[in-house]
């Protein structure tokens, strides 16, 4: 289509259109199931538990393959043996894609910060949008992370160039001198 890549949707004149695009994108996130360790149990409780129920936020955890997903929640310890698989699966997800790092193991290595086989944080391999701290974070914390991500998605392309950058898979710069 090209409207996003050509920067048409970032213009102030079509702000309602951009807003509508982001609104529909943020409430239909397809989450790729990437549960590695203990945090996966809390993620499953957030998804399947009637008490926390992530699906009411529009996050559906049943894409048939990574090629049909747009959100990946890395929950659990990332080991050096697993890292190439994570990278390969992340590259298979089409743009625009979002990554939530759940739990302290995937944020920074966590309690295994000195292990010989643990990657100290998944952001060493793939770019992360939202970090959810905790060991394990409560399901409500994951829900807060998703709501934060949804707020971020809503503001993409409105007063910034994030929308086009995300569509094309370019790295997003956070903050900076003009923030």
């Amino acid at each position: 289509m090209g409207l996003v890549e050509r920067g048409v949707l970032s213009k102030p004149a079509v702000k309602p259109l951009t807003w509508l695009l982001n609104y529909s994108r943020k409430y239909s996130l397809w989450m790729f199931q990437w549960g590695l360790a203990c945090c996966a149990i809390e993620m499953a409780a957030a998804l399947a538990g009637p008490r926390y129920d992530m699906m009411r936020l529009g996050v559906i955890p049943f894409p048939a393959s990574p090629r049909q997903a747009d959100l990946v929640v890395v929950s659990g310890t990332v080991t050096d043996k697993m890292a190439p698989a994570i990278k390969r699966l992340y590259e298979q997800i089409p743009d625009p894609k979002y990554v939530i790092s759940m739990g302290s193991c995937s944020n920074c290595g966590g309690p295994y910060w000195d292990s010989y086989s643990v990657t100290k944080g998944v952001d060493q391999i793939i770019p992360v949008d939202v970090y959810v701290p905790g060991c394990p974070p409560r399901p409500e914390a994951l829900l807060e992370g998703i709501v934060m991500l949804q707020a971020r998605i809503q503001n993409e392309g409105i007063g910034n160039t994030e929308l086009a950058a995300r569509w094309q898979g370019e790295p997003i710069t956070v903050g900076g001198a003009d923030a």
Partner: peptide, 11 residues
């Protein structure tokens, strides 16, 4: 196996 090996016995 080994994709979740965190090296407990060394830690």
């Amino acid at each position: 196996i080994g994709y979740m090996h965190r090296g407990y016995e060394k830690l």
